[in-house]
Design a protein around this nucleic acid. Structure first.
Lengths: 396, 396
DNA sequence: CTACTTTTTCCACTCACAGGACAAAGAAGC
DNA sequence: GCTTCTTTGTCCTGTGAGTGGAAAAAGTAG
């Protein structure tokens, strides 16, 4: 199939495309109910969209008591690529234009190997998905990277955990390789967009999305739009001080949240506890695997190991303390907790909730849900697909 | 003069009104350079605005090398009322539509006396300004109150330091009394709008405005618009924990920023220091005035009193610590420090800067100015006038 | 006084859009 | 099977907004 290069010609068309993306197939009449355009105008715009090939007719809709309407849907052959680059692994997924995941691959990877090696792997994974018949090519790709990004240009800036990526023109390079439009963003922002599109944050306009993985970051959504800050580093909460004169952190300060709780910190604490003989459960796992990760702590906690539970609780307390401050400041309508450590589940959540509800003022917490993300590892790739679809579905 | 009741009829007119407000008198041709409308269209819209009386012709502009253009300006008889209600005093000012202050009154007041008593005083002050010939009536009024506000309705919600104000329909009541449109907002948000309109934040779109007065609050501006949060309590940073297991706070927790540094806390600490004989300077002032306020500390510091300087430095450290966290999270392009304690000046500023620059990451602080507000006590009333003018200058 | 600019008005032409009329297609009731 | 009513889709015309050219008005520069 030849790739679509068309873009909506005006704001009305963009609006319609987004309605079809978010609401699935729709009859012309139903669309008319949602957009406040005259029937004639609507017909003209829909016809134009049909001409571009971005949308297609799709049979007849059920009758609403009179003549049956023709269904309209986004071209089911459109394909978007969602890439979520983490610190230690990468997710690549193919979606249709309605952002339904058609195929998903996850592979371990080390982001420190640099952009060239990583994108070689990403492109190979994309090729694999293509080869399996899911796509013949891509109409757009969204890329998430674990660090701050100069958003308009799609270039990482001074990313602490990604040596070799600073200034690498990710957007341009991948656009060349893939032959389609590409947008790049921080992985945390994409997780927020994913949960907003298909997860727990569907109905909220102002919310925070805290991702606890190798590091800790926070996606900020204001009025339905991701807020990125002046230099693209908004949400970088890993280095907020959680413990005065606490542990030394890689950033040079002491007591940073990330130094006290994150995938990396948790693994280190667990190893230490195992070596000190505090936890037979963890010691056994250390013996077996030759090392411990957050997943081991999670499993130990699930098995009722007291030390593992303590570690999680303590980390949750620190995280909750920082989040409590953010809640007072930002007054969100929802806080989503996600990332690799969601396996820690409700022990973590309970600790965070306790801190936030105790420390923030009632007006801010009164009706504030604090929940785990719904999408798990797919949040990032769905958010990536949504990022690029937002771009494709805006007037040219 | 009969008050203007007209409102712009469409977005173009609203745009023109705001240009005239922010840029002062302008020729038709200059306006044309800024709005991307055809000459004919522009002429039509300007004519309509002239008809409504919102703008008036104002002689001829200087030649730009050819025929001289007619000047257009906002009707100089328009009058806006800006009211900034603090915890212990109230500011009332009259401005023209270009938000130039024509008259300004400040009186001590206790917000705890409740809305009825306070508004009696405010209305008397407004009447005084009217009587002095500055205005014959008001075309709109903006009101700032020291607590969270349900913005659309203009009603304070659960304000901690304003007993008796919870649920009081400020907007409706004052609109009745004054006979003009009224908008109500948190005083901190108004200070931010003031500094944005006429102060240090003129060129920034994302910034924070920290107001240290009786309490501590923070105005948040995102993309040029004030962000108020889900329940209107965004920016309420006074109860973020600054010191673990610190001093007890009125809110029931310990270690809140406000308990360790604010106008009230500073006065208390100074009194204590004076009584313990740590500072002859402060003791003398305590003797003279029978009590100490932040102003006394400020004066003592200016006189070189070591204890006063220490108090300010320590407070600045706590404040800076909290702000450092907010900077990491929000990545603003500017931080403005204002409020009653700006008299503490550069000692305070230096302490805050030290903490922020030390604790936040370089990407966020690299190009981040932290400055004192430029407008002092007029920031609030100018912001109030701007709030209502934004309302008046939007399509009906 | 002439040549050139800038501003302003005037006017004809285009184009988007709303909304009514009508045809097409189906549902519900008899 | 027939009639009546509802919903959907198409066509068409009138209206009003807006553009851009032409020319007049009012300057400046030399």
């Amino acid at each position: 199939m030849r790739r679509m290069t068309a873009r909506p010609g005006n704001a009305h068309q963009a609006r319609l495309l987004r309605l079809l993306r978010d609401g699935g197939p729709n009859s012309r009449a139903q669309l008319g109910d949602q957009v406040d355009l005259s029937r004639s105008k609507l017909a003209v715009e829909v016809d134009r969209l049909l001409e571009t090939g971005l949308v297609v007719a799709d049979g007849l809709a059920a009758s609403r008591g009179g003549r049956r309407s023709h269904n309209i849907r986004l071209n089911p052959e459109l394909r978007l690529l969602g890439v979520d680059i983490g610190a230690t692994s990468v997710d690549v997924a193919v979606t249709n234009a309605e952002l339904e995941t058609l195929g998903h691959l996850n592979q371990p990877m080390d982001v420190r190997e640099g952009p060239v090696a990583v994108f070689e792997q990403v492109l190979a994974m994309a090729a694999k998905l293509r080869a399996s018949g899911l796509a013949e090519g891509f109409d757009g790709a969204g890329i998430g990277v674990p660090g701050p990004v100069r958003f308009p240009e799609g270039i990482p800036v001074a990313p602490p955990i990604m040596p070799g990526w600073d200034g690498f023109p990710v957007r341009e390079a991948l656009s060349q390789e893939l032959g389609c439009p590409v947008m790049v963003d921080n992985d945390v922002n994409l997780m927020a967009m994913g949960e907003q599109h298909a997860g727990v944050a569907r109905t909220v306009v102002d919310f925070l999305c805290v991702k606890i993985g190798t590091g800790i970051g926070c996606g900020i959504v204001v009025g339905g739009e991701v807020y990125r800050g002046t230099t693209g580093s908004a949400g970088d909460i890993g280095h907020i001080q959680a413990v005065p004169d606490g542990r030394p952190c890689a950033c040079g300060n002491r007591g940073c949240l990330e130094a006290h709780f994150s995938g990396a910190a948790l693994a280190r604490d667990a190893t230490e506890a195992a070596q000190q003989g505090l936890s037979p459960e963890l010691a056994a796992r250390l013996e077996t695997n030759g090392g411990l990760t957050a997943v081991d702590v999670s499993a130990a906690a699930a098995a009722g190991d007291a030390t593992a539970l303590d570690l999680i609780r303590e980390g949750g307390n620190h995280t909750g303390q920082v989040i409590a401050g953010l809640v007072s400041f930002f007054n969100p309508g929802l806080v989503v907790i996600g990332g690799g450590v969601t396996g820690l589940g409700h022990t973590l959540l309970a600790a965070i909730r306790t801190q936030v509800y105790r420390q923030s003022l009632p007006l801010a917490t009164g009706n504030l849900p604090i929940v785990l993300g719904e999408l798990g590892p797919t949040a990032g790739v769905i958010g990536a697909a949504r990022l690029i679809s937002d771009h494709l579905f805006s007037p040219a």
